[in-house]
Amino acid sequence: MNLRYGMNPHQRTATATPIDPGTQPLRVVHGAPSYINILDAAGAWQLVREAATVLGRPVAASFKHVSPAGAATAGPLDAVMARTYQVDPATTGALTGAYVRARDADPKSSYGDFVAVSEPVDAELADLLRRVVSDGVVAPGYEPGVVASLAAKKGGRFLVVTADAAFEPPPVETRDVYGLRLTQPRDDAPLTRELLADPRLPAAAVDDLLLGLVVVRYTQSNSVAYVRDGMTLGIGAGQQSRVDCTRLAGAKVDTWWLRRHPAVQASDAGTKVQDRVAAQLQRTEDVPDRAAWLRILDRVAFVSDGALPFADNVEHAARHGVRYIAEPGDSIRSAAVRQECSRRGITHVHTEIRLFRH
C-alpha cells in the first residue's frame, strides 16, 4: 500500500508491502496511513491479540510513537473513569470498558493515540472513539455501520484498519539499517503462567504480571510496566537508564492515583473528555495530604523487560504500591535485588526471559 509519507512528512513515496503477496496482515478500510501509523497499528494489534490469548478476555491498547501509553483487559470501571468518559459502569460493554481502562492509564499521553482492540468494534465503542482525540483504530473486524460512523471522524481522516486475526508472521525478521541487513528469528517465546509459577503469588497478581510481560514485549526498551487489576497504571519506555524508566513510570502511577483523590474529583470542568482530563491533572498538583494518599495504593505488580541491575529499582517501585515484581534475573546484583524485595515484603520472580524491543 502507498503511505502518505515515511517517519517524517518530507519522506515521501513510502510504501508498505506484504512479504508474502498472498497475505494481508493489515488492511486499511478507511483513511490514508503514514509510516508510523502502520508501525503503531502492527505493534498495538500484536499486543492485544497476544494478551487476549493468554488471559482469555478482551484487551485494548492505546499506542503512541510505537509504544503503548496504556493497555488493559475488560474489567470494572471506577467512578473517575465513568465521569471522565461519560459512561455508565453498569451498562458499558466489555470491549468499551477495556479501552476506557487502557486510555485512563495515561490520558495525557493517549491524546491522539492509535487504538487497538482484540475483538470487532461495536457501535458502543465507536461512539466513544468519536468523542476522544485519536488518530485511528485497528481491530479484527467492525460491526455493520461502524466503519461509516468512524470514517466521519477527523473530517474523514480517521484511520480504520482491519487485522487478519489468523495471520502468523514469518519465523524470520529482517531489517535494513544503514546499508546493513539484519536478520533474526522472530521473538515468539511463549509468555505463560508457567513463567510465574510461584505459590506466593495470588492468581490476580499472576494475571497482572502476565499482562505486564506482554506489554513490555511491545514497548520500546528499556521498558517497565506497573499493573493493577488488569490495567496498566504506568508504562516507561525507551530510557537508557532502567531506574529512570522505573521512576518515570512510577510518576505516572502517582498521577493516576491522585486523579482518584476526592479533592481532584470535587468538580468536573468542560464538556470534552480531554478538558476533563486537563482539569484533573491540574488539580493533582494541589492535593492535600498528598503523601498520605499515595501510601494507600497497594497490590501493584511491576514488570521489567530486562534484568534489574540494582536494588534502587525496587526502592522506587515500592513507593508506588508495588507488591509483586517479575523480571528476567541473571544480573550480577540479582541477589541484592532479591534481598531488597524480601526486606520490603515484595514477592519477586525471575522469568529468565528478556523482552527487549528496538
Rank of each mutant, 00 (worst) to 15 (best):
1 M>A: 13
1 M>P: 11
5 Y>K: 07
7 M>A: 15
9 P>R: 12
10 H>I: 07
11 Q>T: 10
17 T>P: 01
20 D>W: 06
20 D>H: 12
21 P>V: 07
24 Q>A: 05
33 P>V: 08
36 I>V: 14
39 L>E: 15
39 L>K: 08
41 A>P: 04
42 A>H: 07
43 G>C: 03
49 R>C: 03
52 A>T: 06
55 L>S: 08
55 L>C: 06
61 A>Y: 01
62 S>H: 04
65 H>G: 06
67 S>R: 14
68 P>R: 12
74 A>E: 14
76 P>W: 03
76 P>Q: 13
82 A>D: 09
85 Y>E: 01
87 V>D: 05
87 V>M: 11
89 P>A: 08
91 T>D: 06
93 G>E: 08
93 G>I: 01
93 G>M: 07
94 A>H: 06
95 L>T: 15
97 G>V: 02
98 A>E: 08
100 V>Q: 05
102 A>G: 11
108 K>H: 10
114 F>V: 11
131 R>L: 10
132 V>Y: 06
135 D>R: 08
140 P>M: 02
142 Y>F: 15
142 Y>P: 04
143 E>A: 10
143 E>D: 13
151 A>D: 05
155 G>K: 06
157 R>E: 15
161 V>E: 08
164 D>N: 05
168 E>N: 08
170 P>Y: 02
171 P>N: 12
172 V>Q: 14
175 R>P: 00
185 P>W: 04
195 L>C: 09
200 R>Y: 11
202 P>N: 12
211 L>C: 04
212 G>P: 07
213 L>P: 02
213 L>D: 04
214 V>W: 03
220 Q>V: 11
220 Q>P: 00
227 V>Q: 03
228 R>A: 10
238 G>M: 10
241 S>H: 11
242 R>H: 14
246 T>K: 09
255 T>F: 00
256 W>Y: 12
256 W>P: 00
257 W>E: 09
257 W>H: 15
262 P>W: 02
264 V>Y: 07
281 L>P: 06
282 Q>V: 12
283 R>P: 07
283 R>L: 14
286 D>V: 03
292 A>G: 02
294 L>Q: 10
295 R>T: 10
295 R>N: 10
300 V>Y: 08
304 S>G: 09
310 F>C: 00
311 A>V: 04
312 D>W: 11
314 V>T: 01
316 H>C: 04
317 A>G: 03
324 Y>D: 11
325 I>M: 07
328 P>A: 09
332 I>K: 11
339 Q>K: 10
344 R>A: 04
350 H>I: 01
354 R>N: 13
355 L>D: 03
358 H>V: 12
358 H>P: 06
